[in-house]
Amino acid sequence: NNDALSPAIRRLLAEHNLDASAIKGTGVGGRLTREDVEKWLAKA
């Protein structure tokens, strides 16, 4: 759900042209964290 994304995470996803639904969030309530996105980028 994009409503649950912080502005910083939205920007990070946009910079790398990523789809938030492709990344499993580990934050509160399954929210994406910066670490989630960075780990996903490291694997890609």
Score class of each variant (00 low, 15 high):
N1D: 14
N1V: 14
N1Y: 01
N1I: 13
N2M: 13
N2Y: 04
N2S: 13
N2R: 12
D3S: 10
D3A: 09
D3I: 09
D3M: 06
D3Y: 00
A4Q: 14
A4W: 15
A4N: 14
L5V: 10
L5N: 05
L5Q: 06
L5Y: 04
L5A: 05
L5K: 03
S6R: 05
S6T: 13
S6Y: 05
S6A: 09
P7I: 11
P7D: 14
P7N: 11
P7A: 12
P7Y: 01
P7T: 10
A8Y: 07
A8G: 10
A8F: 05
A8L: 08
A8V: 12
A8N: 10
A8D: 14
I9M: 09
I9L: 13
I9G: 01
I9P: 00
R10S: 08
R10A: 12
R10Q: 10
R11I: 09
R11T: 07
R11S: 09
R11V: 06
R11A: 12
L12D: 03
L12S: 04
L12V: 07
L12F: 06
L12A: 06
L13P: 00
L13D: 00
L13W: 01
A14N: 10
A14M: 09
A14I: 10
E15S: 08
E15M: 11
E15G: 06
E15P: 01
H16G: 02
H16D: 00
H16P: 00
N17Q: 09
N17I: 05
N17K: 08
N17P: 03
L18I: 15
L18T: 07
L18M: 10
L18H: 03
L18Q: 05
D19S: 09
D19L: 09
D19P: 08
D19T: 09
D19V: 09
A20E: 10
A20P: 14
A20F: 09
A20M: 10
A20Q: 07
S21A: 12
S21F: 07
S21W: 05
A22C: 09
A22F: 12
A22M: 15
A22T: 12
A22K: 14
I23C: 03
I23R: 02
I23A: 02
I23N: 01
I23L: 10
K24V: 14
K24A: 11
K24S: 09
K24P: 13
G25R: 04
G25M: 03
G25W: 01
G25V: 03
T26Y: 02
T26N: 05
T26R: 03
T26V: 03
T26Q: 04
T26I: 04
G27S: 03
G27T: 03
V28T: 11
V28D: 11
V28Q: 12
V28G: 06
V28L: 12
V28N: 08
G29R: 06
G29H: 09
G29T: 04
G29N: 14
G30R: 03
G30Y: 00
G30L: 00
G30K: 03
G30E: 04
G30P: 01
G30S: 04
R31T: 13
R31Q: 14
R31V: 13
R31Y: 06
R31D: 05
L32V: 14
L32S: 00
L32K: 01
L32E: 00
L32F: 04
T33Q: 04
T33G: 01
T33N: 03
T33H: 01
R34H: 11
R34L: 15
R34Q: 14
R34Y: 15
E35L: 09
E35H: 07
E35S: 09
E35F: 07
D36M: 03
D36H: 00
D36N: 01
V37Y: 04
V37H: 00
V37K: 00
E38W: 13
E38H: 06
E38T: 06
E38D: 11
K39S: 12
K39G: 13
K39Y: 13
W40C: 06
W40A: 15
W40M: 15
W40P: 04
L41D: 01
L41F: 08
L41K: 01
L41E: 03
L41A: 03
L41H: 07
L41M: 07
L41N: 01
A42T: 13
A42P: 09
A42M: 09
A42G: 11
A42N: 12
A42D: 15
K43W: 10
K43G: 13
K43F: 11
K43R: 10
A44H: 14
A44M: 15
A44K: 07
A44R: 05
A44W: 15
A44E: 14
A44I: 15
A44V: 14
A44Y: 15
